[in-house]
Design a protein around this nucleic acid. Sequence first.
RNA 1: CGGGGCGUGGCGCAGACCGGUAGCGCGCUUGCAUGGGGUGCAAGAGGUCGCAGGUUCAAAUCCUGUCGCCCCGACCA
Length: 589
Amino acid sequence: MRMSRLFSQTLREAPAGVDIVSHQLLLRAGYIRQLGAGIFSYLPLAQRSLTKIENIIREEMEKIGGQEITMPVVHPAQLWKETNRWYKIGAELTRFTDRNETDMVLAMTHEEVIADLIRNEIQSYKQLPVLLYQLQTKWRDEPRARGGLIRVREFTMKDSYSLDKSWDGLDEQYLRHYQAYFDIYHRCGLDVICVSSDTGMMGGKLAHEFMYLTPIGEDTLMVSDETGYRANREVAIFQKPPAEAEAVQALEKVHTPNTKTIESLADFLNIPKSKTAKAVFIAATILEAGEEITKLVFAIVRGDMDLNEIKLANALKAKAMRAATEAEIEAVGAVPGFASPIGIKDDSVIVVVDDAIPDSPNLVAGANEVDYHYKNVNLGRDYEAHIITDIVSARDGDTTADGKGTLKEVRGVEVGNIFKLGTDFTEPLGATFLDENGERHPVIMGSYGIGVGRLLACVAEEHHDDNGLKLPMSIAPYQVHLVMLPGGETAAIADEVYQELVSAGIEVLYDDRDERAGVKFNDADLIGIPLRLTLSKRSLKNGGLEFKQRDSQESRIIEREQVVETMKAEIQSLMDGIKATVVTVPYEA
RNA sequence: CGGGGCGUGGCGCAGACCGGUAGCGCGCUUGCAUGGGGUGCAAGAGGUCGCAGGUUCAAAUCCUGUCGCCCCGACCA
């Protein structure tokens, strides 16, 4: 490609308010342009990289038996109503009606359509297992897009769906995806870790997320170097520091003016926060006898710990949760700031207690009276719990659940996920098959996603320097950047070299513009093609073309006759280097 | 959805408090010079100041509303 014709311009300065490196560089290097919040156009350079990433994904999907299909972006809402997600999912699912006033949705994922497809296409166990995948546009109306391509509303996703007749079959396909995903990321030059995760809106039995570790990541992960434990904080388990054993004391009301927070309470009474009980009020939407109802939930955790809303939602099997309003809290007789389950008569309130509380005697808790708390509050004697389970978040420095290691808190960007869905979608949609004995069973399903644009953004985060991008050979838009510095015969010779390289099947970005050396070198650095050839009067005098890798300071002269062969070898060598990073990763459930 | 910020040529910004000819840098066009890390000189093109109302003799500037974008939080696979 001649740069004089390339539909792309580099920018000296990044647009205002762009502060994530990948976003800045992809904009400045002319890869992407923004249309709206979380909506981007991909210019030729980005498109070429994305296509390469997609092809890597295709290869790895085909390797594990995947067959590519394409499903629609617009779905009749009927399907989503059948699985209940029409009702469960909030505003991130975009709904509209067509000209006949039929409810429609914009695809945010494709489990419904897959299940619909197979309920019509699959009747027999002989047709299973199957693995279907697509690379397709998703629309998710995120509350807040951010970080350039890190979090967008419209994006291309590789989503695959495994279909099996047995749970063992699902396990196998899940495992194959696990390794295939590592291979995909490694081939793109990205190192990731795999963590246990919540199943969220997907439902299902088990899920893992693939995380690129970076401080700009939106997910908090708990990892242990000693034990290899890795989990999203949403679900991370840990060993809770035990409270000191002591005899149960008599309940005692104390005057505690202006102590609405745990900090102020602990300070006022001069006790550690671990001697207090914190009450958090949540309005949870729960399905009861097929009806959605909103219930007030008292979540009780020890004052030195933080409530984990995902764990709480899972404990309640809640569809949705929000902070309760003061009015709702007061309506059941509790007093915000001084609230606790003690003396609450309203039996519609669900009390969920963290499992550290039963072992923590004589806590200080609210007296449901302004400026008063109780001392020596004990679960069982002073109040009852409907549910006792783990509902607090692990934190940096906590002990692993097995007691053998320490948890470290790191940030990550989720570049992929894998879900064991089981029959969550196939059952409601009636996607069944007949087994060897003529018995009908729901197909067992798995769902696996990779965000393609986000992956590119993460690679850009990982591979850059102060001057610009340094994309890995496997996904760089071009393999060689040929820089012609005008003067004498250089343009004519460079034209020939360009043709020779292209004829040899090498992907070349050829800077044929009448620009100064500084402009060309700076643009080349920004765009980040891995190999650079410079052809100038000086290089010719020195015996040929100057060769430099984007990722290196050194350069050397290559005779013109050797250029094609040398480039082939250099490309191969970089590809071999990437290949060496593609390794088997042991699966840890 | 809560909090904060910002909308002025393609990009980055000033002008606004104190209403009166819309300005700077980069980029773009043309010419001359230059020619190995964003070159110099000169001449140009390009903006109904997000949009809609209002106040005023007069609005980029003041007021009201609205739309959009960014950041933090909530939320989210």
